[in-house]
Design a protein around this nucleic acid. Structure first.
Lengths: 236, 236
DNA sequence: CGCAAACTTGATGTTGCTCAAGCTAGGTGG
DNA sequence: CCACCTAGCTTGAGCAACATCAAGTTTGCG
């Protein structure tokens, strides 16, 4: 199982495209690159767990992670899926507030938190950039609260599919679903069975096509939007 | 009805205690005070609505507001209750992402967004302070996602009561509930009836006392914590 | 080819919603 | 000061949406 362990490498990678560097000067970029370490994960490996001491901040360079919180009895709520370019591990506590686990092969860039924190003080515009990132996350979190608290299963799944469509603008309407049904369920506050049934229903209604379990084509985007907003409660 | 309208006043108020000023220098504090305007609201008046152009940032000086999002058919999800010392209206979009409505008589301090934004660039440490505030909100939002997506009605209400207890450490265990049952329901993703029934059950079980509908005493804090964590599913 | 994990589908069960009615408290006007 | 009125709260009965439990099916991989 050794080959499955997480490992850090003193590797020379081009980091100039990192999100944390965007808009910062050449000097800041090299400063950031200097304190970073590249790390890789295989699927299902955790980058860090809720409650661990928050020693590092990470940026996703490649692949996708799921972030989640658990209840004592194992119930799971996925708070987000993070892909290339996203930061994670930012917190003002001394411990991580959620678990981050690789869904695919993942490459991240790791920054020691102490130095990262110093950069927030010293690099002009850096705190503002992080504020922008965090504000966007908060916005997404609030949308998700509306979804979790007030939407029906059909609305939840429809909303979710639409966000998938909006992310993958590449290849019109043909979407790769990189998460399992269980992940989707834990993200939407449903069970696997309900997610599966709802997708089947959308397929039967000609709203989507499911060539395989992991890919999807949206046939009727308007109707999906109507369903997501809860405007077609009668029609189903 | 004129007396019920929101109004802004060129009023001299001591603003040195504002949260936005904390930890900043004397110069920054006076700078902030210089661009602020005091504004008052009576209960049920909205400070701003979701989708409005985000012209200002606010700080609550007195009273409590509810923040919420609506679905087209009127379903409401309250994303938070804001009291004294909290900032609101921060967004990186050009419009507000939620509605803010007064629950009590409210006094806020208003800052033009353009100037506030300039301060983020110019006042050292200001962006970092806002980052801390936003990070805390994000943390709370993620806890709320877990609650909304994965907790039962009993667990939701128990969790909510515990956060109330933690806020009001004043007067051991005697808590004033400033929101209506409907507000609580819309915050927890439940209906009024379910909230009422659950509170009644807690009362019957001797976990809490409800002298009036708007106040509460926690009799058995341990049990409430156990319920909130979902550890007593069998016992009820 | 065979195995395991993921997915789908059906039958049944339960939580929390809906609808309906009565209760309580605070505020208003006679 | 009291009666009324209304908004908020409580409680009950029935129901629907979603969960649970239980097979089967498909898929990907060794």
């Amino acid at each position: 199982m050794y080959s499955h362990r997480n490992f850090a490498m003193p590797m020379n990678v081009d980091l100039s495209g990192l999100i944390v560097c965007k808009g910062l000067g050449q000097q800041a970029t090299s400063h950031i690159a200097a304190i970073s370490v590249v790390q890789r994960l295989v699927p299902t490996k955790t980058l860090f767990s809720e409650g661990d001491e928050a020693k590092d901040v990470f940026e996703v360079v490649r692949g996708t992670l799921r972030l989640y919180k658990l209840l004592p009895d194992g119930r799971r709520q996925i708070t987000g899926f993070l892909s290339e370019g996203h930061l994670l591990g930012l917190t003002h506590e001394n411990y991580y507030l959620y678990t981050a686990e690789a869904m695919t092969d993942v490459t991240v860039c790791r920054y020691p938190r102490s130095r990262f924190s110093r950069m927030v003080d010293e690099v002009p515009g850096f705190a503002k950039r992080l504020l922008a990132v965090t504000s966007n996350e908060l916005c997404a979190a609030q949308d998700q609260m509306l979804l979790l608290g007030r939407k029906s299963a059909v609305e939840k799944v429809a909303s979710f599919l639409l966000t998938l469509v909006q992310r993958h603008t590449i290849k019109r309407d043909e979407i790769r679903i990189s998460m399992t049904r269980t992940d989707i369920a834990d993200y939407l506050g449903l069970t696997v069975e309900t997610v599966s049934r709802t997708l089947s229903k959308f397929r039967q209604d000609g709203i989507i096509a499911l060539p395989t379990a992991n890919s999807m084509t949206v046939c009727n985007c308007d109707q999906l939007e109507a369903l997501a907003a809860g405007e077609l409660n009668d029609c189903l």
